[in-house]
Design a protein around this nucleic acid. Sequence first.
DNA 1: ATTCTTTATCGTAATATTGCAATATAATTT
DNA 2: AAATTATATTGCAATATTACGATAAAGAAT
Lengths: 112, 112
Amino acid sequence: MGATKTEHFSPKVNAIASLAKAIGHPARVAIIEYLLKVNTCICNDIVNELPLSQPTVSQHLKALKEAGLIQGEVEGNSICYCINPKAIEKLNNYFGKLSAKISTEHLNCCTK
Amino acid sequence: MGATKTEHFSPKVNAIASLAKAIGHPARVAIIEYLLKVNTCICNDIVNELPLSQPTVSQHLKALKEAGLIQGEVEGNSICYCINPKAIEKLNNYFGKLSAKISTEHLNCCTK
DNA sequence: ATTCTTTATCGTAATATTGCAATATAATTT
DNA sequence: AAATTATATTGCAATATTACGATAAAGAAT
């Protein structure tokens, strides 16, 4: 026991969970915010920006990359990381749909 | 070491991370989808719907509740759980803003 | 009152995540 | 080629999460 039973859930559900999980850490939210703010991206900037060691930041960047939320490109001796718009769009789409569903079909219980 | 350094990040960043983290598990995505689908909510339905034991489902429900994503109300001898529209709205808002920012200021690197 | 139903909690094992120091790698500069 | 710079990987300790059997709690039905 202990391991998530991903295989029992649909690919769609797993896809959303995996994106959300990647964002589910403040350091990784901060990284995304920073990439968006500077609108250009070299990892060392991020290390300086975060209250975490270089290896830890590298690890978080890896997690974001594996989830498809950011992309990295070798650029000289540093690496250019930036947001993958498609991943954010997927999340935006998903929560947009949830929101729409909720506001149209107002729930028939828990009426508080 | 091992514990997330939440205290080093802004409340806003922590709030998003905590919501995303709660959704970051397929069982919890499935729970939300189910609550939305049936548009009414008794936990036992959810247990039957998921490939997980009752205690595990209960644990996931607790996680969702603590994150503010669902609400529960005692209803006879069962509990009526349902989505908290405000939490979904927060996420929708956040990713909407990210998406908008990305599409307007197109990134000046990683141009692939 | 006893039994049934529904949900929560406890205890515990398996696994995953977080964080960092040390080290490795690889391009850049000197 | 040595030193520097930027990033990744390894190894490991601390902590958190996931899952479930057993059990508890609490209202409902008999």
